[in-house]
Amino acid sequence: MRLLTHNMLASNVRGATTGYPLKLEAAKWVTKEVELNADFIRGLLPKIDWRALVAATRALGLPELLPEEQPPEEEIFAEGAAGVEGSAIRRIHHALLEIHVQEGSLVCPDTSRCFPIDKGIPNMMLHEDEV
């Protein structure tokens, strides 16, 4: 599960109000490089919940990866930024698409219901009495 997917997932357990964002507890994660596509990031960024993304990176022990506040778009998409090591767009790309959580859990912020991540796959299934 990448952090992009974490950013899109909520808990539907009975008793949850928003069920979002899910608290990430990662026991094991890996990174896999993929090609950066600035247009894709540009299209996606307005849909990303920045705070949830930042919280996820901090949960992985990466406090330096993303700043508390989203950098201005003109900085993120500045000419040539994608080619600069450590630029905002590269950090965002890395956070969203290159980190794969393999083992851990997602915890509902309202009910503390824990959804396991096993072999990289989050299990959001609810029991009948939880729906």
Binding site: L4, N7, L9, I121, M124
Partner: peptide, 21 residues
């Protein structure tokens, strides 16, 4: 190739944030 795979009922848990996406 890569896809993020999720165990869930249809799209449960994704429907709000993925609305219209």
């Amino acid at each position: 190739v890569h896809a993020d795979v999720i165990v869930t009922d249809i799209v449960s848990g994704l429907e709000k944030r993925l609305a219209g996406m």
